[in-house]
Design a protein around this nucleic acid. Structure first.
Length: 261
DNA sequence: TACTCATGAGCAA
DNA sequence: TGCTCCTGAGTAG
């Protein structure tokens, strides 16, 4: 589930497995040709920003983006033969991580790394004790006439939000996804930021996306987790009117036309 | 077994 | 806006 919370979890897990260790890196599938350069280097730290993950080794930085399909799997104990299409395998004695189906898995230089970080909007999971990130989000979102539903998916405006959180956060804000960013009051944008901080942090803790009050347990069945996401045509949980669906910037958008004005 | 769909995003037109 | 890449889960038959 590659929205920001799961990338953060991957980063934590990767550090738990490999911090300060020289890591053997291979590409069983053969498509990560730089694995040889990386192999044997000590892993220093993992840096997630939104949906991007940067793995810092002594001499190299690896950029990873899971896209829709990408997945990590971790194993303890005796390494097993790779199953399926494994793009990259990271291993130390008795621990390994397999990466499958990422959109991006490549070595990048320091300049590229910096330019990607700058291009990305603020990440609600980063420390923001001085509210700078919150202000940056408000400034970026309120500067555009693009609908807010599109802005929340724009990684240059806020990083880490995907299609599920987009729909749910706007529902929770009672805000129509079609409202242009520059017409959304700053206090509403601030509330959207605060809600993103809470929901992503909850996602990091629980590993699943939970967006309904009183449903903050992992055991919540999938079909009860969301307010509107994937509920088109079904009764809105709040007002009973049917949940709407439309395409926005080539992605499915779910909202309640009665609750979200 | 075959087909469809997905939590993403870059690119060409 | 539509096409493309990548992989696996779910579903229809």
């Amino acid at each position: 589930m590659p929205e920001g919370h799961s990338v953060k979890r991957s980063a934590n897990k990767f550090e738990e497995f490999f911090l300060n260790e020289p890591v053997k890196v291979t590409s069983p599938q053969g498509r990560f040709t730089d694995s040889k350069i990386l192999s044997g280097q000590k892993f220093v730290f993992a840096q997630p920003k939104g949906k991007q993950l940067f793995l810092h080794f002594e001499e190299s930085i690896v950029q990873i983006h899971l896209g829709i399909y990408g997945k990590w799997s971790y194993q303890n104990g005796e390494p097993k033969e790779p199953v399926g299409q494994v793009r990259a395998r990271f291993q130390v004695e008795n621990r390994l991580a397999d990466l499958r189906g990422p959109t991006i898995c490549s070595l990048i230089d320091a300049d590229t790394h910096q330019s990607i970080l700058q291009r990305l909007g603020p990440d609600p999971l980063w420390d923001d004790s001085d509210n700078k990130l919150r202000e940056e989000f408000i400034a970026r979102a309120s500067a555009k006439k693009v609908p807010i539903g599109q802005l929340l998916m724009d990684q240059g405006v806020i990083s880490g939000i995907g299609n599920v959180f987009r729909a749910e956060i706007l529902f929770r804000a009672n805000l129509s996804p079609f409202t242009p960013g520059n017409l959304v009051p700053n206090e509403v944008l601030g509330a959207i930021w605060d809600d993103s901080v809470d929901l992503l942090a909850l996602g990091v803790r629980t590993s699943v996306m939970l967006t309904r009050e009183n449903f903050q347990k992992v055991s919540v069945p999938k079909d009860e987790r969301y307010w509107v996401y994937k509920r088109e045509g079904m009764a809105c949980r709040q007002c009973g009117n049917p949940v709407s669906i439309a395409m926005m910037a080539a992605r499915k958008l779910y909202w309640c036309g009665f609750c979200q004005k």
